[in-house]
Simulated assay, not measured.
Amino acid sequence: MNNVERHQLILKQVQANGHVSVLDLCEKLKVSSVTIRKDLQFLEDAGMLFRTHGGATGSNPYQKDRTINEKSQINADVKKRIGEYAAKLIEPNDSIIIASGTTMQYFAQQIVPQQGLTVITSAINVTMELIKHESIDIIQLGGPVRKSSSSIMGRYAEDLLGDFFCSKLFIGVDGIDAGFGITTTNAQEALLNRKMMESAHKTIVLADSSKFDRRSLGKIAELSKVDMIISDNIPPKYQQLCDNLGIEYKIC
């Protein structure tokens, strides 16, 4: 099989499945991984696909920043289901951290007040959802406002987190990549998210299935630092990766 025939077959596989792996292509085409990687690089340079960790995809894996109003309309039903499940993990007398994002807002809407619940959050929209409940103690982090996510970020918020340690962090992400880890579109917010992870015993990622095999500008942490993932669908390779890393996951 010559170069053109290989390229055509690779593109057909991407169109049919949405994603291809280097290992599968090596077996199917009977060539080395070096050859396949060169083929994928050529096709990416031609604008025909996007390379990912261990393979390639037909959709752009690099997430760009969008307004909170735009993001709130995407996969709304899925985010609500994810939020409903996550809310069941809250226990009486719990102290939790809730990060920013539209999935976190849907999560906040599903929280049933528990005895002695304390919530620390950087998200203004989360605070506005929880302030309706008199029994929930809310600590709003302070600092500059990132308008696109309706959230606080920066050094003031990071320093304040150093005074707390909570049982759980619930965090939304813009990308989950097997090799690069969990990411968000803003570097400063990534730093704050990292500080949140240091201030929590358990990190729980709430992410719809569109976030897998994607990466954004700001790296939050390696995937191995995550304790649990809640999603509507988790690709098999990520289920296997979670099993290998000891990460709990729930598909809802």
Rank of each mutant, 00 (worst) to 15 (best):
Val4Pro: 10
Val4Trp: 15
Val4His: 15
Glu5Asn: 11
His7Cys: 04
His7Ala: 05
Leu9Arg: 13
Leu11Thr: 00
Leu11Phe: 01
Leu11Tyr: 03
Lys12Pro: 00
Gln13Cys: 09
Gln13Arg: 14
Gln13His: 13
Gln13Asp: 08
Val14Arg: 00
Val14Asp: 02
Gln15Val: 09
Gln15Arg: 15
Gln15Tyr: 11
Gln15Glu: 12
Ala16Phe: 12
Ala16Gln: 12
Asn17Glu: 03
Asn17Met: 03
Asn17Gln: 07
Asn17Gly: 02
Asn17Trp: 03
Asn17Ala: 08
Gly18Pro: 04
His19Phe: 07
Val22Gln: 04
Val22Met: 01
Val22Ala: 00
Val22His: 01
Leu23Val: 12
Leu23Lys: 13
Leu23Phe: 10
Leu23Pro: 05
Asp24Lys: 10
Asp24Ser: 11
Leu25Asn: 02
Leu25Lys: 06
Leu25Ile: 02
Cys26Val: 11
Cys26Tyr: 09
Glu27Trp: 08
Glu27Val: 11
Lys28Ser: 07
Lys28Gln: 07
Lys28Phe: 08
Leu29Ala: 01
Leu29Ile: 00
Leu29Val: 03
Leu29Gln: 02
Lys30Arg: 11
Lys30Cys: 04
Lys30Tyr: 04
Val31Trp: 00
Val31Glu: 03
Ser32Asp: 02
Ser32Glu: 03
Ser32Met: 06
Ser32Phe: 06
Ser33Asn: 03
Val34Thr: 14
Val34Gly: 04
Thr35Asp: 04
Thr35Gly: 06
Ile36Asp: 00
Arg37Tyr: 05
Arg37Ile: 02
Lys38Gly: 03
Asp39Arg: 06
Asp39Gln: 04
Asp39Leu: 02
Leu40Pro: 10
Leu40Ser: 11
Leu40Val: 07
Gln41Asp: 04
Gln41Ile: 02
Gln41Pro: 00
Gln41Val: 01
Phe42Asn: 14
Phe42Lys: 14
Phe42Ala: 14
Phe42Cys: 14
Leu43His: 08
Leu43Ile: 12
Glu44Met: 11
Asp45Phe: 14
Asp45Glu: 15
Asp45Ala: 14
Asp45Cys: 12
Ala46Pro: 10
Ala46Met: 14
Gly47His: 11
Gly47Met: 10
Gly47Lys: 12
Met48Val: 10
Leu49Ser: 13
Leu49Pro: 10
Leu49Gln: 13
Phe50Gly: 15
Phe50Glu: 13
Phe50Arg: 14
Arg51Val: 08
Thr52Ile: 13
Thr52Pro: 14
Thr52Cys: 15
Thr52Lys: 15
Thr52Asn: 13
His53Gln: 13
Gly54Thr: 09
Gly54Ala: 09
Gly54Glu: 00
Gly54Gln: 03
Gly54Ile: 02
Gly54Met: 08
